[in-house]
Design a protein around this nucleic acid. Sequence first.
DNA 1: ACTGTTCGTTTACGCTTGTAATCAATAAAT
DNA 2: ATTTATTGATTACAAGCGTAAACGAACAGT
Lengths: 153, 153
Amino acid sequence: MAIEMDQHITNAEWEVMRVVWAQGEVSSKVIIEVLSKKRGWKEATIKTLIGRLVNKRVLQTKKEGRKFIYSTEVEEDALVNDTLDQFFHNVCSKDVGQTIQVLIEKAMLSHEDIASLKQALIRKEREAYDVVPCNCIKGQCRCHHNKNNEECC
Amino acid sequence: MAIEMDQHITNAEWEVMRVVWAQGEVSSKVIIEVLSKKRGWKEATIKTLIGRLVNKRVLQTKKEGRKFIYSTEVEEDALVNDTLDQFFHNVCSKDVGQTIQVLIEKAMLSHEDIASLKQALIRKEREAYDVVPCNCIKGQCRCHHNKNNEECC
DNA sequence: ACTGTTCGTTTACGCTTGTAATCAATAAAT
DNA sequence: ATTTATTGATTACAAGCGTAAACGAACAGT
């Protein structure tokens, strides 16, 4: 990721970011058109969101006449991956495999996706565990081996 | 999932939930022990979080003397999956495969996990797309085929 | 030159969240 | 019986968030 993404992007802000990612360089006008239609937000609301993203330096601005063109250095896939990483802190490492499986089952995947995922799994085999070590602390995980270890379970 | 999970669980609340999921039936005392150690939270803070979860009816209570035993009907995997589902609304369906791949690459997986994921992929092949249809609206996605369609791209 | 429109900025406001202190009721200890 | 500890409930409070109106400067149209 190009920028220190300690920034938290809220749900409403994601909508704005998606427009910026889609368009690359974009005026507030366009963002407002897209989102007022999609979400029924008032112009003012969308302006607020843009303003907040600029404050957080997630959006860059370039003056063009009296108005601004917005863009971002934050890459979409980087932010998606970071956000998911964050979330997976809430899940025991032993359960991640199962969780990914549910994702696969629910996703719409192409043949190409599937081939690529299979390849990834094959590569993964080289570093696979017999049993994935649990990363939970004692008291926060059901697995209860290793009871005397601070690092659960 | 056993209960209508329109409920939003905040990050801080997840910590409490993980204790409840780990223990099944648990007193505030234990929750406080675990989380004050893990997060350095004050007793009062953790009580607030428990109280909020009870208000949201995410936690059930059973009186035992003057104190309560807490439990939940919300299942961990259901909540994890719901939350991920939610999040994936922010991602173009065409990109989900790639996103899952990054998850796989970063995850710790067992041989068993991998075998199971492979199976899931094989099953998935039967309903695989040649090209995954994009579910974004116009203006929020880079893929620009089908320009005249409201449902992008 | 005036007027309406556009667009960024400022202000608003109630709700949620993280973090906690205080209070009140009860139980335990002396 | 009085004191102390436990524990749930109430109150607090600043920051973040969703949603938006109002303001002011600059532009566009006439």
